[in-house]
């Protein structure tokens, strides 16, 4: 599914070059639930952004679903993000003045989905996160947990193969965090690949594979298997 070799990412900050990723090799198979961990500044977010085409690597080769990604144009990458990837961010990134429906519909506006099919897709995605009764509520009126569930519905609406989640529970209380992890686990059980960036051990324990980064390099890559599961598992 995902195969990257010798990924390097350099940032120029005030004349000095900072290496955020230093020759990282990574392969992720379909259906895996991967937690990318590490202290802040370890390069875990950068890796996620490169794997999800939000950013281009300075060097290295990247294949997604067998296709070489390094040579694709911005518009092609936008199309792949739209159809094949879903995003969940720590700060939700919802359009606050728009309704839940409009937020979830957003990716469909940028794909070729005919308008008459959109409604069914939005309703299915919102139903999957249990917010059907909030469909027409303005996003800014929702609680943090509800906002993140809307974000997950938005990530789901185009039925993507891979969902990237960047600290999805970082801004949530424990109960909401548990709900979000339970939904991600369910999506993984349905066969979707989940790539989670986190610095919290207990959220990482929903994943079956842990990749630890330090100073832009992979420190360890292990498959301890899932140690937590379901809402209750969050509080163990």
């Amino acid at each position: 599914m995902i195969h990257a070799e010798r990924l390097v990412k350099d940032y120029a900050t005030g004349g000095a070059r900072t290496r955020a990723l230093d020759h990282v090799n990574i392969t992720i198979d379909p259906g895996e639930f991967v937690a990318i961990m590490g202290p802040s500044g370890s390069g875990k977010s950068t890796l996620l952004h490169i794997l999800s085409f939000l950013e281009r690597p300075t060097e290295g080769a990247y294949q997604f679903g067998g296709r070489d990604m390094t040579s694709l144009a911005d518009a092609d990458l936008a199309g792949i993000r739209n159809r094949e990837l879903g995003f969940v961010f720590q700060s939700f990134n919802l359009l606050g003045r728009s309704s839940v429906y409009e937020n979830v519909e957003l990716p469909l506006l940028y794909s070729a989905v005919p308008p008459r099919e959109r409604k069914a897709k939005v309703e299915r995605a919102v139903g999957a996160v249990g917010l059907t009764d909030k469909l027409l509520v303005e996003a800014s009126r929702l609680s943090g947990g509800q906002k993140q569930r809307v974000a997950i519905a938005r990530a789901l609406v185009n039925d993507p193969q891979v969902i990237f989640a960047d600290e999805p529970t970082g801004n949530l209380d424990s109960a909401s965090g548990a709900q979000v992890m339970e939904i991600l686990e369910r999506l993984n059980n349905e066969g979707r690949t989940i790539i989670l960036v986190t610095h919290e051990t207990y959220t990482a324990e929903y994943a079956d594979r842990h990749i630890r980064l330090r100073d832009g390099k992979i420190e360890s890559d292990s498959k301890p298997g899932k140690r937590r599961t379901g809402i209750d598992g969050f509080f163990k």
Partner: peptide, 8 residues
Amino acid sequence: LRKAVGAT
């Protein structure tokens, strides 16, 4: 956000 979800 719009670009992340597929806007060109």
